[in-house]
């Protein structure tokens, strides 16, 4: 049976589902944000930015859930076959990948609030503003949002690159720990 909690060899169902949901949403969110922000003022821009903001709120909640779950359920330790610097780099990037999306999301939320463009989550739930409308602050939050997203993109390149290295070059079981096969194959 598939394991709900993490084991020593692999991540459990909950950690995997949260990881892949956030991964998928971030890979939709990044091009969506870039595309929408570069549209001229139009109904399409209003719609896509609205979806961008709703997805952002979703990512924030899921990212916080991942942090909480990581705290409750310790992830599998990295094997000794990895060099110390590799394990340190992996930990640093993992932690940054928990924190930076949350910060990028908060900066986006601050920007939307300061611009006066409040968020209604998929037309279901009106999200409160973090700050009052402020035309001077809005460009600063916008720049902060863009900067943090830039950092996130660099982290993702590092993360995906490292995963590819483990899967195709090092050929250890690091990547498999986050794949369903890790528990599908086992009883």
């Amino acid at each position: 049976m598939a394991k709900f909690r993490n084991s020593e060899e692999s991540y459990g169902i909950l950690a995997q589902v949260l990881h892949w949901c956030v991964a998928m949403l971030i890979f939709v969110q990044l091009p969506l944000g870039v595309y929408a922000a570069n549209l001229p003022v139009s109904l399409a821009r209003l719609q896509w930015l609205s979806y961008h903001k709703s997805i952002g709120i979703t990512i924030l909640v899921l990212a916080l859930a991942r942090l909480a779950w990581r705290w409750i359920d310790a992830p599998p330790a990295l094997p000794d076959t990895m060099a110390l610097w590799e394990r340190r780099a992996a930990h640093a990037v993992h932690w940054a990948l928990y924190v930076v999306p949350v910060l990028a999301m908060l900066a986006g939320w601050l920007y939307a609030s300061a611009a006066g463009l409040s968020v209604n989550w998929f037309g279901i739930l009106l999200i409160p503003d973090l700050v009052a409308k402020n035309a001077e602050l809005a460009p600063l939050f916008k720049a902060l949002h863009h900067g943090l997203v830039g950092v996130l993109v660099l982290l993702l390149i590092g993360h995906v690159g490292a995963a590819a290295r483990h899967a195709f070059l090092v050929r250890d079981n690091i990547v498999q720990r986050m794949l369903p096969a890790a528990w599908w194959g086992k009883k």
Binding site: L46, G116, L117, N120
Partner: peptide, 9 residues
């Protein structure tokens, strides 16, 4: 209302 949220100007 814009995208379901109030907007002022």
């Amino acid at each position: 209302m814009q995208a379901g949220a109030p907007y002022t100007g």
